[in-house]
Design a protein around this nucleic acid. Structure first.
Length: 509
RNA sequence: GCCGCGUUGGUCAAGGGGUUAAGACGCCUCCCUUUCACGGAGGAAUCACGGGUUCGAAUCCCGUACGUGGUACCA
């Protein structure tokens, strides 16, 4: 393998949100490039103006940035092989298409959309619901193969709308070696004469990938498995245009599936999990599709869970940082079969990464969540301490609000059902006296509070355990959170006493 | 319909002729903790089916079923 000049590319069309499968395709490209000291290129495939969506390109770059996968070359950082948007390379494609015609590998086709539809309708049968424009029908259509030469010249001269189609050979077995699937082969007679250049002069994907991969010196082409069926067209184009020896090595990545079949935006709404990397709002319908970021995922976790959805290094390791992935990734170990996305497991990865990373890494994001709920933080160091204290209990970033807001704000509701059944006067008495004891503590530390609490409990002959739960409810409002004395130590003397007194009045009301 | 690709517990998966068929998520039980988690110890649950080949098949071959992608002047 040529390690020195590996060049891979991610080639999205700017038509909407970036979903799981897309991010994983980027990731595998990125990992492969970094592992081999190569370049990771992003090329925007915007050859279909009808599907162009405002803002979609910027959105893609935002997602890549959030994930920590910055391209070496892209429309934003042009390298030596620009431009990096296919719409801006329009001029270069036609020559290649015409070169194919000259060599007998392609032809002009003048059929109108209506004529194409008519052909499909008349040829359609139950056994063949979607007839192709292929070797069987092309001589009955309007193209430079079926029409007399002078007629073709005339049509061309009159600027008749036309496309250029590849002429699939009659009986040829087209095969290639996929880095994941191994040897894959197709019969040329079963593949249709795909359009290469559209009537508006734009190339289709088929022509554009081949030409651009060549021009951009792409060495390895990784893409979703949905492309496997059209691979024979690409192989042929490489053979006709640049030579098979120049062709990149292909890898067709397995699909990521949803709970019931293929993963769709709908699944997200239906099962309550994100499918896009980041929030995406459809410009036309104004419909918002939630992203992993906004759901409260850490990019480290998102990358990790995507990496192992269809790949593993053969060991028992489950948690990988980006650097470890770069070190250990190998395209050959990518699975052949599609994998069903499991949100429960995805959450587990996030929880693991929250535990693993120091709170300083994600503190600003948690702070934003707090602020969105009108809880403002002024002491950052203290905030970090609190987050580190409660992070074992959080799976998604918004969980921090439930797990930590009471450190900054006294509870306004109390789980009285948890205390009332066993509440009595002697306990009221205890807590009243405990408050006076607390007043006397000079060094407000966890141990001192706990000692004071236990000594008083012994004196009053009450089991400390029976008092801890009420105390917890007093301080946090519910049955959750870290050790009570830890909480008391954290919120301070005055606040602790205030909360106990307030709760006492509620419990005894 | 045709073509391509796939198929190890519910999910992600290791293993690729001889294994008690790893591990993880989820689920259940117990321990820790008089909160909730974390952590720890256990448990239930699997080689899609049918034929071959072989002393021996989850592993190799062939069928079938199922899933998935393509079958556009979309990518």
């Amino acid at each position: 393998m040529l390690e020195t000049n590996v060049r891979v590319r991610f080639a999205p069309s700017p038509t909407g949100g970036l979903h799981l499968g897309g991010v994983r395709t980027v990731l595998y490209n990125y990992l492969f490039a970094k592992k081999h000291g190569g370049k990771f290129i992003v090329r925007i495939e915007d050859t279909d103006q009808t599907r162009f969506v405002e803002g979609a390109e910027q959105y893609i770059f935002d997602c890549l940035k959030w994930c920590g996968m910055e391209p070496d070359e892209s429309p934003l950082h042009e390298g030596m092989y620009g431009p990096y948007r296919q719409s801006e390379r329009k001029a270069s494609y036609r020559n290649y298409a015409e070169q194919l015609i000259e060599n007998g590998f392609a032809y002009y086709a003048f059929d109108t959309p209506e004529e194409l539809e008519q052909m499909r309708n008349t040829l359609k049968t139950e056994e063949n619901p979607s007839p192709q424009y292929d070797g069987n029908v092309r001589m009955n259509m309007k193209n430079s193969l079926s029409l007399p030469a002078d007629e073709v010249t005339r049509l061309l001269k009159e600027n008749t709308r036309h496309v250029i189609r590849i002429k699939m050979p009659a009986n040829e077995t087209i095969s290639f070696t996929d880095m994941i699937h191994g040897e894959v082969s197709f019969e040329s007679s079963l593949v249709d004469d795909k359009v290469l250049l559209k009537a508006d002069g734009m190339p289709t994907y088929h022509l554009a990938v081949v030409v651009d991969d060549y021009l951009m010196k792409i060495t390895h082409a990784f893409r979703g498995e949905e492309w496997l069926s059209s691979a024979p067209v690409h192989i042929l184009l490489w053979k006709y245009l640049f030579g098979l020896d120049q062709m990149p090595q292909w890898a067709h990545l397995p699909l990521i599936l949803g709970p019931s079949g293929k993963l769709s935006k709908r699944d997200g709404a239906k099962y309550g999990f994100p499918v896009f990397a980041m929030n995406w709002t459809d410009g036309k319908t104004n419909e918002l599709t939630e992203g992993f970021k906004e759901k409260g995922f850490l990019p480290e976790a998102f990358i990790n869970l995507l990496a192992v959805l269809g790949w593993n290094d053969g060991s028992e390791q489950e948690l990988f940082s980006m650097d470890e992935l770069i070190e250990k990734f190998s395209i050959e170990r990518v699975h052949k079969g599609g994998a069903k996305f499991d949100f429960e497991k995805a959450k587990w990865y996030n929880q693991e990464w929250i535990k693993k990373l120091p709170a300083t890494v994600y503190k600003s994001r948690v702070k934003e969540i707090f602020e969105a709920k009108d809880l403002f933080i002024n002491d950052d160091a203290h905030f970090t301490k609190v987050l580190d204290l409660v992070k074992d209990r959080c799976t998604l970033l918004p969980d921090f609000y439930d797990q930590a807001s009471y450190f900054f704000k006294a509870p306004s509701q109390w789980d009285t059902d948890a205390v009332k059944p066993k509440w009595n006067e002697s306990k009221t008495d205890f807590f009243n006296e405990f408050c006076s004891q607390l007043e006397k503590i000079e060094s407000w530390k966890l141990e001192n509070i706990e000692i004071s609490f236990k000594e008083l409990a012994a004196e009053k002959n009450i089991k400390p355990g029976e008092l801890q739960l009420p105390m917890r409810i007093m301080l946090v409002g519910g049955k959750f959170g870290p050790a009570v004395f830890e909480i008391a130590a954290m919120i301070g003397k005055t606040e602790t006493i205030q909360r106990i007194k307030k709760a006492l009045s509620i419990f005894n009301a």
